[in-house]
Amino acid sequence: TLDDSATICRVCQKPGDLVMCNQCEFCFHLDCHLPALQDVPGEEWSCSLCHV
């Protein structure tokens, strides 16, 4: 889900339109996540760090 609060991106440390991982609660810009996300993920989304 998009989170436009004062939360910062885990990768670039900047605020903005972010998606939050449902497991670790880290936030990412779509372009900062590795691999980059093309679209906003669904409600139950886990980042690539949680899939390691």
Results as ranks from 00 to 15, higher is better:
residue 1 T to N: 15
residue 1 T to D: 15
residue 1 T to E: 11
residue 1 T to R: 03
residue 2 L to Y: 13
residue 2 L to A: 11
residue 2 L to P: 15
residue 2 L to C: 09
residue 2 L to E: 13
residue 2 L to S: 13
residue 3 D to V: 03
residue 3 D to K: 13
residue 3 D to S: 08
residue 3 D to Y: 07
residue 3 D to A: 01
residue 3 D to W: 06
residue 4 D to C: 15
residue 4 D to N: 14
residue 4 D to Q: 07
residue 4 D to H: 12
residue 4 D to P: 10
residue 4 D to S: 13
residue 5 S to D: 07
residue 5 S to Q: 08
residue 5 S to C: 10
residue 5 S to K: 12
residue 5 S to P: 09
residue 6 A to D: 07
residue 6 A to Q: 07
residue 6 A to Y: 05
residue 7 T to L: 04
residue 7 T to N: 09
residue 7 T to V: 12
residue 7 T to C: 04
residue 8 I to W: 05
residue 8 I to N: 12
residue 8 I to T: 13
residue 8 I to V: 11
residue 9 C to V: 01
residue 9 C to S: 01
residue 9 C to N: 04
residue 9 C to K: 01
residue 9 C to L: 00
residue 9 C to Q: 00
residue 9 C to H: 00
residue 9 C to M: 02
residue 9 C to F: 02
residue 9 C to W: 00
residue 10 R to S: 15
residue 10 R to L: 02
residue 10 R to Q: 07
residue 10 R to V: 10
residue 11 V to M: 14
residue 11 V to H: 02
residue 11 V to T: 10
residue 11 V to N: 10
residue 11 V to S: 06
residue 12 C to G: 06
residue 12 C to Y: 00
residue 13 Q to P: 01
residue 13 Q to H: 14
residue 13 Q to V: 03
residue 13 Q to L: 11
residue 13 Q to W: 12
residue 13 Q to S: 13
residue 13 Q to N: 14
residue 13 Q to I: 07
residue 13 Q to M: 13
residue 14 K to I: 00
residue 14 K to F: 04
residue 15 P to Q: 03
residue 15 P to W: 01
residue 15 P to T: 03
residue 15 P to H: 10
residue 15 P to I: 05
residue 16 G to S: 11
residue 16 G to L: 04
residue 16 G to N: 15
residue 16 G to V: 01
residue 16 G to F: 03
residue 17 D to G: 14
residue 17 D to N: 08
residue 17 D to I: 04
residue 17 D to Q: 09
residue 17 D to W: 03
residue 17 D to K: 12
residue 18 L to I: 05
residue 18 L to V: 06
residue 18 L to S: 01
residue 18 L to N: 02
residue 18 L to R: 01
residue 18 L to C: 06
residue 18 L to Q: 03
residue 18 L to D: 01
residue 19 V to M: 09
residue 19 V to I: 13
residue 19 V to C: 03
residue 19 V to Y: 09
residue 19 V to S: 02
residue 20 M to S: 11
residue 20 M to R: 13
residue 20 M to C: 08
residue 20 M to F: 09
residue 20 M to L: 05
residue 21 C to H: 04
residue 21 C to L: 01
residue 21 C to K: 00
residue 21 C to W: 00
residue 21 C to M: 00
residue 22 N to G: 07
residue 22 N to P: 05
residue 22 N to T: 09
residue 22 N to F: 07
residue 22 N to Y: 05
residue 22 N to E: 14
residue 23 Q to T: 12
residue 23 Q to H: 03
residue 23 Q to D: 08
residue 24 C to Q: 00
residue 24 C to M: 00
residue 24 C to R: 02
residue 24 C to I: 00
residue 24 C to S: 00
residue 24 C to K: 01
residue 25 E to S: 14
residue 25 E to K: 08
residue 25 E to I: 07
residue 25 E to D: 07
residue 25 E to Q: 11
residue 25 E to M: 07
residue 25 E to R: 10
residue 25 E to A: 08
residue 25 E to W: 06
residue 26 F to D: 12
residue 26 F to R: 12
residue 26 F to Q: 14
residue 26 F to L: 06
residue 26 F to W: 05
residue 26 F to Y: 10
residue 26 F to N: 10
residue 27 C to S: 15
residue 28 F to P: 01
residue 28 F to S: 04
residue 28 F to W: 14
residue 28 F to I: 12
residue 28 F to M: 06
residue 28 F to K: 04
residue 28 F to G: 02
residue 28 F to D: 03
residue 28 F to R: 07
residue 29 H to C: 02
residue 29 H to S: 01
residue 29 H to E: 00
residue 29 H to I: 00
residue 29 H to T: 02
residue 29 H to G: 01
residue 29 H to N: 03
residue 30 L to I: 04
residue 30 L to F: 02
residue 30 L to V: 12
residue 30 L to H: 09
residue 30 L to R: 12
residue 31 D to W: 00
residue 31 D to M: 05
residue 31 D to P: 09
residue 31 D to A: 08
residue 31 D to F: 03
residue 31 D to H: 12
residue 32 C to K: 01
residue 32 C to L: 00
residue 32 C to P: 04
residue 32 C to Q: 01
residue 32 C to W: 00
residue 32 C to A: 03
residue 32 C to Y: 04
residue 32 C to E: 01
residue 32 C to M: 00
residue 33 H to M: 09
residue 33 H to F: 04
residue 33 H to Q: 13
residue 33 H to D: 14
residue 33 H to L: 10
residue 33 H to W: 04
residue 33 H to A: 12
residue 34 L to C: 15
residue 34 L to V: 14
residue 34 L to E: 15
residue 34 L to M: 10
residue 34 L to W: 06
residue 34 L to H: 15
residue 34 L to I: 06
residue 34 L to N: 15
residue 35 P to R: 03
residue 35 P to H: 04
residue 35 P to T: 03
residue 35 P to I: 07
residue 35 P to S: 10
residue 35 P to M: 07
residue 35 P to W: 01
residue 36 A to P: 14
residue 36 A to L: 09
residue 36 A to K: 09
residue 36 A to I: 04
residue 36 A to Y: 03
residue 36 A to C: 02
residue 36 A to N: 05
residue 36 A to G: 10
residue 36 A to D: 05
residue 37 L to Q: 11
residue 37 L to A: 13
residue 37 L to D: 07
residue 37 L to Y: 07
residue 37 L to G: 10
residue 37 L to H: 08
residue 37 L to I: 09
residue 37 L to P: 10
residue 37 L to W: 14
residue 37 L to V: 11
residue 37 L to C: 12
residue 38 Q to H: 07
residue 38 Q to V: 10
residue 38 Q to L: 08
residue 38 Q to T: 05
residue 38 Q to M: 04
residue 38 Q to W: 04
residue 39 D to I: 10
residue 39 D to Q: 09
residue 39 D to N: 03
residue 39 D to M: 08
residue 39 D to F: 08
residue 39 D to C: 08
residue 40 V to L: 08
residue 40 V to N: 08
residue 40 V to H: 05
residue 40 V to M: 08
residue 40 V to I: 05
residue 41 P to D: 08
residue 41 P to K: 02
residue 41 P to S: 05
residue 41 P to G: 09
residue 41 P to V: 08
residue 41 P to N: 10
residue 42 G to S: 07
residue 42 G to K: 14
residue 42 G to A: 13
residue 42 G to P: 11
residue 42 G to N: 15
residue 42 G to H: 14
residue 42 G to C: 08
residue 42 G to V: 11
residue 42 G to F: 09
residue 43 E to L: 11
residue 43 E to M: 12
residue 43 E to P: 12
residue 43 E to K: 09
residue 43 E to I: 11
residue 43 E to W: 09
residue 44 E to L: 08
residue 44 E to A: 08
residue 44 E to M: 12
residue 44 E to S: 12
residue 45 W to F: 06
residue 45 W to A: 13
residue 45 W to T: 03
residue 45 W to E: 09
residue 45 W to I: 08
residue 46 S to W: 10
residue 46 S to P: 09
residue 46 S to E: 14
residue 46 S to T: 11
residue 47 C to E: 07
residue 47 C to N: 05
residue 47 C to K: 04
residue 47 C to A: 04
residue 47 C to H: 02
residue 47 C to R: 03
residue 47 C to V: 01
residue 48 S to E: 12
residue 48 S to W: 13
residue 48 S to P: 15
residue 48 S to M: 15
residue 48 S to I: 01
residue 48 S to R: 14
residue 49 L to E: 15
residue 49 L to C: 07
residue 49 L to Y: 14
residue 49 L to W: 14
residue 49 L to V: 11
residue 49 L to R: 15
residue 49 L to M: 13
residue 49 L to G: 15
residue 49 L to T: 15
residue 49 L to Q: 15
residue 50 C to V: 03
residue 50 C to E: 08
residue 50 C to P: 13
residue 50 C to I: 04
residue 50 C to H: 13
residue 50 C to M: 02
residue 50 C to Q: 06
residue 50 C to Y: 00
residue 51 H to Y: 03
residue 51 H to D: 13
residue 51 H to N: 03
residue 51 H to F: 04
residue 51 H to G: 06
residue 51 H to S: 14
residue 51 H to L: 12
residue 51 H to M: 13
residue 52 V to P: 13
residue 52 V to Q: 02
residue 52 V to F: 09
residue 52 V to E: 11
